[in-house]
Design a binder for these strands. Structure first.
Lengths: 236, 236
DNA sequence: TCCTAGTTACGTACACCGTACGTAGTGCGC
DNA sequence: GCGCACTACGTACGGTGTACGTAACTAGGA
């Protein structure tokens, strides 16, 4: 591996092992799993080269034999969680199956709340992400549409899932870095928002708050939004 | 301001000036503008307390008189760009006006490519964001729907805008941190993707690539996606 | 079979980050 | 006019990513 100078390359194009030299102590999967474990338990910001190395039980700089840059570690992580997608043999109802895909993606992200922050098209090239994408396309086989439209639809569904999970979990993830608790945070922000809305500067917002529907069922909101999007892509 | 201990608070609830002591040399707007200038020119990762202080022309630690934590600096930045929204007196066609809102939001984000990364519900409380939200609600006055639905629609539109701009610009923003150029990055990733697709493991993806429609018009893709979403919320 | 080149392993070091804390100077409210 | 709350800011600490040097190891070619 070596290649100490900075050379443009994709981590997936690097062979895990070249034959020469002592055999590596860890696999790429080991490393990804360690990083994911840390991110799940202590948040994405706790994923540092040092912490991951410690979790693996090796020296910090040894990690760089496997992962040339930290960015590539993120890429490994995203691929590792993409591998958690459970795929199936698609039947005929593309709408129902895309719904199932979306629900699975949602629960995946809720299991790994740092995912929305790492969501990016540049991670869309990893093996398991490609596999996931291919599966989505397979689900869409019954849909009469050019591939361009299908890809747009898949991007839209993934976008909706990401957006909604982020909206749901972002405060929780963000508050990890803050020196106070989430309850204090939401309380303080809620009080300020209430004060602002009561100021009279935002009449419609005030009205919206007045007809308070109680606690919002995030699951239901997501389901509704997703259904609308899928309808939008259904042949009238 | 003092308040040196870590106390839960929203920056907007802190008075800019208390009367006692020497008058502050900078306003919140000055600081936000400096940070935005840096983020626009050198990327979000260049927005450090030191750099912002230098841009303002003051010592690093003086910044902490105005901004208790870096997170709050981000909040100032998001409010500053939210202030760039040009609002208008809404007429009667809510669909057309939400379309206009979305297009404006898109060009705003393209002007400040770091925005998608900072998009989060916790920044939704800032004065100018509330103003923007109120304006969206005003545009939706003609729509017969409970406020809950209206807010969901607005969230959806903002989500779509964010997702699409991110997809469009993320590589460009990300490559700033890399030691090589964007052209090299896209070339290397493109080559790898082509190799993977040609491997036969992803037949539908291969087919999709085969019917290559040439360069994609991002503007058109966005317009189409947005139209579909708005249709989904129109009374049948 | 031995040699050597390329690999793994990892400690040290550097530049940068956010920010706690101490200290000095300033000007409003009492 | 006194005192106190504020501004200003230098220093310092613990964290980060990672360049680089060095030692140990192992497979391929002679």
């Amino acid at each position: 591996m070596a290649v100490r100078g900075a050379v443009p390359e994709v981590i997936w194009a690097r062979p895990e092992r070249t034959g020469r030299g002592p055999r590596p102590a860890y696999s790429r999967d080991d490393i990804a799993a360690a990083a994911v474990r840390i991110a799940d338990a202590r948040g994405l910001d706790a994923v540092s080269m040092r912490h991951v190395a410690a979790e693996l039980g090796c020296g910090t700089m040894s990690l760089y034999n496997y992962v040339p840059r930290k960015e590539d570690l993120y890429e490994l992580m995203m691929d590792a969680v993409a591998a958690e997608h459970v795929l199936w043999e698609p039947g005929g109802d593309w709408r129902a199956e895309l719904m199932r895909v979306a629900h699975q993606a949602r629960s995946l992200m809720r299991r790994h709340p740092w995912m929305p922050r790492l969501m990016s098209p540049v991670y869309g090239f990893s093996p398991h992400t490609l596999r996931y994408l291919e599966h989505c396309l397979a689900c869409l086989d019954p849909l009469e549409a050019p591939y361009g439209t299908k890809l747009e639809l898949i991007a839209m569904v993934n976008g909706v899932v990401t957006t909604y999970v982020r909206n749901e979990l972002d405060t929780a993830e963000r508050v990890r870095a803050l020196p106070w608790s989430q309850d204090e945070e939401t309380a303080v922000r809620g009080a300020y928002l209430a004060r602002q809305v009561a100021s009279g500067k935002y009449p419609r917002l005030a009205e919206a708050f007045a007809q308070d529907p109680g606690p919002v069922d995030m699951e239901a909101v997501f389901e509704r939004a997703l259904g609308r999007v899928l309808d939008a892509y259904s042949p009238h």
